[in-house]
């Protein structure tokens, strides 16, 4: 076979594979940008998604994003709940999901099942089982490195998600900053950083923190070829009452200033007045 013949053949095979993976659906077409974002967060699509923090300090934000995505899926397609798989190492570094906080963010506590694992292997096994059962939206946070979470492992998870028609979100805090280099069979991969803090005017007191915001880069989105520039950061805000993401330039958010505490000790209050 000639050289050009073999490359043609590879292109042909790739198309066949893409068609097979899409379940016989027509080949994916490039989507426009706005449509892309809404389709990206479309809860109807199951599959495996990965959230990686941009820096190690963004791990909590990435977890928050994964939770927001799971909540959106759960709100629009009711299922048994959220199965949250937390590895011991991740729990040590980031803490455990907190029922009251999740409740405040819109998840009734009875819908949460928390599974704790010791090792990345256990985490991946538990995630595969949970995805296969199709009983719930699955969030897993694993301290796995590239050795434990490789192409084969991600392929297993992706197939399990498809079998169970289930959405799985895998959080890899240890792979901070490696989103562009990771090779996996995931449906989509997000690189997450914490949203920028509200700006502070010169001489003004410190503002109040805003709603939950993320900076997001779509590194990979299967089926949405060309819709996203993997180099571009976008600011998004999660509205947990509507369970919706909004792309929102940050300066448009309302700003407020914290009130002085009312029950301060008398001495401290006097000092404030004197100033």
């Amino acid at each position: 076979m000639s050289r050009s013949g073999s490359s043609e053949r590879i292109v042909f095979l790739r198309r066949r594979i893409a068609a097979l993976e899409a379940g016989g659906a027509p080949a994916p077409v490039p989507a426009s940008r706005d449509e892309g974002l809404s389709r990206l967060f479309d809860p109807g699509r199951g599959g495996l998604r990965e959230a990686l923090p941009a820096r190690p300090t963004d791990a909590a934000a990435a977890a928050g994003f994964a939770f927001a995505l799971a909540l959106r899926r759960l709100r629009l397609r009711p299922q048994g709940g959220i199965v949250w798989i937390a590895e011991d190492m991740a729990a040590r570094e980031l803490g455990l999901p907190y029922g009251r906080g999740l409740q405040a963010a819109g998840l009734p506590p009875e819908l949460l099942v928390l599974a704790r694992t010791h090792r990345p292997r256990e985490t991946l096994w538990a995630m595969e089982e949970a995805l296969k059962s199709g009983a719930a939206v699955v969030i897993a946070e694993s301290w796995a490195d590239a050795g434990a979470y490789d192409l084969a492992a991600s392929r297993r998870l992706a197939l399990a998600a498809r079998r169970g028609d289930c959405a799985g979100l895998l959080l890899l805090p240890r792979a901070a900053g490696a989103a562009q280099r990771l090779a996996s069979a995931a449906e989509a991969r997000f690189e997450i950083a914490a949203g920028a803090p509200p700006p502070r005017a010169e001489g003004a007191p410190r503002p109040l923190p805003g709603p939950l915001a993320f900076r997001l880069r779509v590194v990979k989105a299967r089926g949405l070829v060309g819709a996203f520039d993997p180099q571009v950061w976008r600011d998004i805000v999660f509205d947990h009452q509507e369970a919706e993401f909004h792309e929102w330039p940050f300066h448009a958010l309302p700003r407020r200033v914290p009130a002085a505490p009312v029950d301060r000790p008398v001495r401290a209050q006097k000092r404030t007045h004197a100033r």
Binding site: G80, R100, P109, V113, T117, W125, A126, E129, A135, A136
Partner: peptide
Amino acid sequence: RLDDLVDRLGARLGPRRVLRAYP
């Protein structure tokens, strides 16, 4: 299905490692 999943996870990870949150 969720109950079955809880059992299966509990069987492997230990029943004390599969938890629910009660306010």
